[in-house]
Amino acid sequence: MPPPPVAWTPVALAADLQPGAAAGVVVDGAEVAIWRDTAGTPHAWEDRCPHRGMKLSFGFVRGERLACLYHGWEYDGGGQCRYIPAHPDLDVPASICVNRYSAADAAGLLWVASGTGSGDLPDPGDPLSPLRSLFIDAPLGEVLNRLAADGLPGLGPVVESAEDGPLLNFDQAGHRFVVGRHPTGPSGTALHILLKGEVSAEARAAMIPATAELRRLAEAGR
């Protein structure tokens, strides 16, 4: 049985999308532009400029607005086009508007949902230490089965693992791992991995080769 659909999808480590930055992600098979305004508020939009269809994730942030790379059309936080450089005096019609998703920061992750989003976002209570986002060319189900059973390769046995909606938690090597599960396509997976509590940067950096090994094993199907 596939897992029940979840309203919110984790799409990035919150810290990996800086204020003033834009990036492209896939949510439920759709291309979505995520960006933070310079105040740090996250936004998620259909990744397509209403003007010529250019990916808005290629664009650039100016204050509270995202500007398209092609012709500089600027959209405010509500997705409304506010400025067209080729027609600087134009009062932009309200019909020029980007389709929006919901975006929120919670549990060290950036979440996106269609429409207004439904259901609660996780609240772990404890502080979380980010590890990394890992992109794997293998289906989500296979990657999760492997992760729940064996954790990160070479770090010893997994003591316990449990699915918690869009998160997978497991205990390994004295740490509790919290993993945001993010299908990027029929045969593509992103894992957004954090650790419960304050874990030193050195200890986390030492785990990076194990994450690379997980990616290698998952893609080899072994």
């Binding site: 990035a12 480590l13 990996d16 999308l17 800086q18 930055a21 990036a23 492209g24 992600v25 896939v26 290629f58 990394r132 986002s133 992109f135 990027t184 992103a190």
Partner: peptide, 19 residues
């Protein structure tokens, strides 16, 4: 890399390094 259809989505650390 986008000239050869390799997108930046899967490389968040490189994206922030490029910034």
């Amino acid at each position: 890399s986008r000239d050869s259809n390799i997108d930046h989505d899967a490389f968040p650390a490189l994206r922030n390094w490029a910034r």
